[in-house]
Structure formats: C-alpha cells, structure tokens
C-alpha cells in the first residue's frame, strides 16, 4: 500500500503531500504521524500541501484532526504552501481550518514553529496556552 513519507528534521516533522489523497491513505497518514510524534518527541509538524490541488471537507477534517491530536501530544501543526485557488475554495465551502496555523512556505513555517517553541520554553512556569497569536 502507498504511504506518505514523514521526514524528521530535528525537533520537527515534515510531511509533503504530493499525491491526491483518498480516504484510506489520509487515514493512515493520520495514524503514522501520531505514532511518529510520540516516538520522536517532536514539538512541531509541518504539512506541505503546495502540490495539493483539491482540499474537500474530508481532507480538511484530516488536517484538523492531525492538528488537534498533535496538540494533545504537545506539538504544533503548521500547514504550508496552500494554493490560492484552494484557499478561495475552502473559504467559499465554509471550512476555515480553525486550530491550524498556516505559513506561505516551508521556510516561513519553520520560522513560525521555532518562534512558538522559543516562546513556550520561555514561559516554562506554565500559563502559556499556545493558541494566542
């Protein structure tokens, strides 16, 4: 069975989606990623969707699920490289992908995650809720 590779880059995980996701593939990605976060203790997940031309509500839910699960495992998720046409369609569809951070490209996404991690580590005393932007 096809699988979507998950790359480890220090404390971050990078997933590049380059094929059209069908349901089972997307679900296995969800499972693999959660396992990987747990195993590596990653603090951030970058999902590169620059090659994805269609995001429907199913795909939207998978991305939302990944973000929510990662959050519970103490990792932030950033979606990078969304195509303009996809963004316009998602807004029209009424799917705001709430709870997911986005960045223009992988580089900016890594910057965003790093600044979040540094912020969190600075507030070791606790009261950081992570979602404040």
């Amino acid at each position: 069975m096809e699988k979507i590779p998950i790359l480890r880059m220090g404390r971050l995980l990078l997933v590049t989606i380059q094929v059209d996701l069908y349901d089972r593939l997307a679900e296995s990605l969800e499972a693999d990623l959660v396992q990987m976060i747990n195993k590596t203790g990653a603090r951030g997940v970058l999902i590169d969707i620059s090659a994805v031309s269609i995001i429907d509500s199913f795909m939207g839910r998978i991305i939302g699920n990944i973000a929510a699960m990662s959050k519970i495992l103490d990792a932030e998720t950033v979606v990078v490289g969304m195509q303009p046409a996809v963004a316009i369609t998602l807004v029209e569809l009424g799917l705001p992908l709430s709870g997911v951070f986005s960045a223009l490209n992988v580089e900016k996404g890594m910057e965003l995650l790093r600044s979040k991690l540094t912020n969190m580590e600075r507030n070791v005393d606790g009261s950081d809720d992570g979602s404040a932007e």
Binding site: V78, M82, P84, A87, V91, P96, L97, S102, L104
Partner: peptide
C-alpha cells in the same frame, strides 16, 4: 471577511 480568511489560510 472571506478575503481575510483566505489570506490567513495561505499563511499571511
């Protein structure tokens, strides 16, 4: 609001 949401989805 739609324009702002789409911009944010892109990461800007």
């Amino acid at each position: 609001i739609k324009t702002v949401s789409a911009t944010r989805l892109m990461g800007a």
